[in-house]
Amino acid sequence: MLEIKGLKVKLEEEDKQILKGVDLHVGPGEVHAIMGPNGSGKSTLSYVLSGRGGYEVTGGTATLSGVDLLDLEPEERAAEGLFLAFQYPVEIPGVGNMTFLRTAVNAQRKARGEEEMSAAEFLKHVRAKAKELKIDADMLKRPVNVGFSGGEKKRNEILQMAMLEPKMCILDETDSGLDVDAMKLVSEGVNALRSPDRGFLVITHYQRLLDHIKPDVVHIMSDGRIVKSGGPELALEVENNGYADILAETA
């Protein structure tokens, strides 16, 4: 599914290497977590995969089901089934949440040569998914993320994920800014989407999100590389001992 080989990335504007050769393979149905200290390149990885500007790939490859992601526009990556849940979901005044969702769903369908969803079908679908995430009708009507609380924003991300049904989901610090209840709600939303043909890459600082979204593999990232991979126990080790021990051991 998601195959990253030797990925090297620098900032476009300055001579600063952020990713120094990342190798990662996430298979269908698998949940991988990436942990690591601040500035290790976790978020950069998510941005580069989803096609945000400002970065230059200097080496390596990234493919999704064999399709070269790095060659595609962000919207083409999305249509290929890649989804990034943002750490800071963007507020868009003047664009209704519902309009946004329908435009996105139908744009992807169109790009894949599928028929667009009718207004009635879409409405039914979105209401059901919103209900599961405790997103009320008012939130659907309001402009995208405008005036939403931190928790509402993250739930809105998961709603988009549920509606778009991507193959590969990247969650960038989805737990940041969430209280315990909100984290539970978001995690339930994510878990409901787990399926044998969908992969997840969960980027987080903390082990507690992984209590709710149980990973198959945990990677530790440091200074632009994945320095250690292991089972869920690796996250516990980080929680108990911090990164210092692991980093010292791999240095």
């Binding site: 962000p74 919207e75 989804f83 996105a104």
Partner: peptide, 10 residues
Amino acid sequence: FYLRSRGVPH
């Protein structure tokens, strides 16, 4: 970018 990342063309 947010819109495009959801599949909405540029």
